[in-house]
Nucleic acid binder design. Structure first.
Length: 364
DNA sequence: CAACCGTGGGC
DNA sequence: TGCCCAAGGTT
């Protein structure tokens, strides 16, 4: 039997054929059988899902996507919504700049584009929160444009197909070239989604199922018997630890003191309980003198929360007072209303440490 | 370009 | 259990 060391160049056809048989059914997706019945993708749905899916898993996005569409069926509805409502609806999904930009983008589309999304990559990329990936994805999926869509999945597939040894992110331009050469004029949206489905279900980071891959006859990494070696990434940096304290004040009526964080930076625009600054460890005392008002603050444990680039250790203090006290930049919210507030996960953890039953599905 | 920016699930 | 990772964008 003859063996060959040369591989056929990958082609889009086998991937699209694989996608027709093995595509995932997702709430925001017009799958091939639906497309065959003449159903078109709604750019608003595509855009909303793509923004939610930035660095976020499909299972995490599904309930948020359904809730957003139920509350704001069109991009104009979202543009007209109060920011507080949008931030509250986004709470728990993370990367809150996405929610702020989502609102700005909806306002731009509604106000400057007659409620119609631009149908070109350039037009889309000029909108808030839409970068290289999302512009290409919306252009391809919603508008059938021959755009080269490259996300983390595609990077992994491409890096393996061509055994690209250059580390990310330096290898991105080369990878994008390869994607552009592979992207077909026909069904570019399905091709993009197929590449992502392939990366999510077959060409996985660990233990890829190469025997099931439509590219297994033309994958250089597989030929080298080491697909997991790709993509090569730069070493990660160590996560520093920061400390602080959080203060949960409750009135006899069951109201909790809340504040709004500034618009920019970490958890920007979200709701919080009063806290100290979060600084690199300053031995022991996490100053209870930074409390929102003078009272007999009682320590009630600690909360650890891991952010993208640091670990936070919050000392929790609580106090029960007879009635509301006027506090600058703060307001009192009934405990029964906390569920509807724009509270990020770390704040729910802090509140739960002081008021165990504050949230119905609170963790211990 | 590198730092910043959340969260939850899987192994 | 700690680490890796998931449909990235902005500054």
């Amino acid at each position: 039997m003859m063996t060959s060391t040369t591989l056929d160049a990958p082609a889009a056809k086998p991937l699209l054929s694989w996608y027709d048989r093995h595509h995932r059914d997702l709430p925001w997706r017009v799958s091939p059988p639906m497309a065959a019945r003449g159903i078109k993708a709604d750019p608003y749905h595509v855009w909303l899902s793509e923004v939610m899916l930035q660095q976020t898993t499909v299972p995490a996005v599904k309930p948020y996507f359904a809730n957003f569409l139920a509350r704001w069926p069109t991009v104009r509805d979202l543009a007209d919504a109060p920011s507080e409502d949008v931030m509250a609806a986004w709470a728990g999904l993370g990367y809150y700049a996405r929610a702020r930009n989502l609102k700005k983008c909806a306002e731009a589309v509604a106000g400057e584009h007659d409620g119609v999304f631009p149908d070109s990559e350039d037009g889309l990329k000029s909108l808030p929160g839409i970068g290289d990936y999302t512009a290409a994805a919306v252009a391809a999926i919603a508008f059938n444009r021959q755009a080269a869509v490259m996300d983390g999945n595609v990077e992994r597939v491409i890096s393996r197909l061509y055994a690209i040894a250059t580390p990310l992110p330096a290898a991105k331009p080369l990878m994008k070239q390869k994607v552009a050469l592979l992207t077909p004029k026909d069904r570019p949206g399905d091709f993009a989604q197929a590449m992502m489905d392939l990366g999510a279900t077959i060409c996985t980071p660990k233990r890829p199922a190469c025997s099931l891959c439509p590219f297994n006859g033309s994958c250089e990494a597989l030929r080298l018997h080491d697909p997991e070696r790709f993509p090569v990434k730069a070493a990660k940096k160590e996560k520093p630890i920061r400390q602080g304290a959080a203060f949960i004040a409750v009135t006899a009526d069951g109201d909790v003191l809340l504040r709004r964080r500034i618009e920019s930076g970490l958890l920007g625009g979200m709701t919080e309980v009063p806290t100290t600054g979060w600084t690199a460890r300053q031995d022991g005392e996490t100053s209870a003198n930074a409390a929102p008002f003078l009272a007999a603050w009682e320590p009630c444990g600690a909360v650890t929360h891991v952010f993208t680039h640091f670990e936070l250790r919050l000392s929790i203090y609580r106090v029960a007072i007879p009635s509301r006290i006027q506090v600058d930049n703060g307001w009192w919210e009934p405990v029964t209303n906390l569920e509807s507030q724009a509270l990020p996960t770390v704040m729910k953890k802090a509140i739960t440490a002081a008021i165990p039953l504050a949230f119905k599905h609170a963790k211990d």
